[in-house]
Design a protein around this nucleic acid. Sequence first.
DNA 1: ACCATTACTTACATATTTGTACGTACCATA
DNA 2: TATGGTACGTACAAATATGTAAGTAATGGT
Lengths: 116, 116
Amino acid sequence: MVARKQNSTYTRNEKCIIDCDLTYAVYKIGGRWKLLILNKLESKKMRFSDLKKEFSYITERMLTLQLRALEQDGLVKRTVYAEVPPRVEYELTEMALELGPILKQLSDWGSKQRNQ
Amino acid sequence: MVARKQNSTYTRNEKCIIDCDLTYAVYKIGGRWKLLILNKLESKKMRFSDLKKEFSYITERMLTLQLRALEQDGLVKRTVYAEVPPRVEYELTEMALELGPILKQLSDWGSKQRNQ
DNA sequence: ACCATTACTTACATATTTGTACGTACCATA
DNA sequence: TATGGTACGTACAAATATGTAAGTAATGGT
């Protein structure tokens, strides 16, 4: 979310992660708030302010950063309306929608794991 | 992996994440090397030194930390043999095995996403 | 007595992520 | 002229995650 040190071991190791389809996938949804956002957007498109209200504990900055990252990764589509005050809508892309059923299974697994 | 500050916003926000079954699940597999380790252990149980050889870019410390976390979360079973030099074997638990098919789908999704 | 092996541990340094506080542009309305 | 709403941006601080380097215990073999 901020400039990366191109030559740290940390960053170089990232390449090992991006190499594998699985870790690549999880990497894309790995931000702290991304899954909650994706989940929420699954049922309907929402404005920035709607998301802000929904997730009162997420700061505006973080919301912006996570949405930007999701947009970059092609999981969220951002539409700006040239109005004042501004209106910006976020919705899932096809790719993100395909993720839905998988996440549902993960969620079920989580629920099951929790009750042990 | 190290002592947490119980009252940071960061730690308090974690509770919001653990509340949701989905984010809870992803949280369990969210360490940097966990998925690679789980993936590898799916086919066979392995010794610490085997894993070390397999993932030469993961430091011993990180390997230990990730394995410990996986063990804590009931995804990996650790067996110590009272020998010298020591022998320790790691294998997946039932719970982790159930995760396998889901991860396979995630991996496929990742592969598809990558080729866009 | 010395060295090698295995599976760690510990102290410390660095990198990255997340959070805090504040500022901005736009225009409509009071 | 002042204020309000929306969707950000920016500088900075704090917290956490990861990486580096070195050390440990036990014992068998030389």
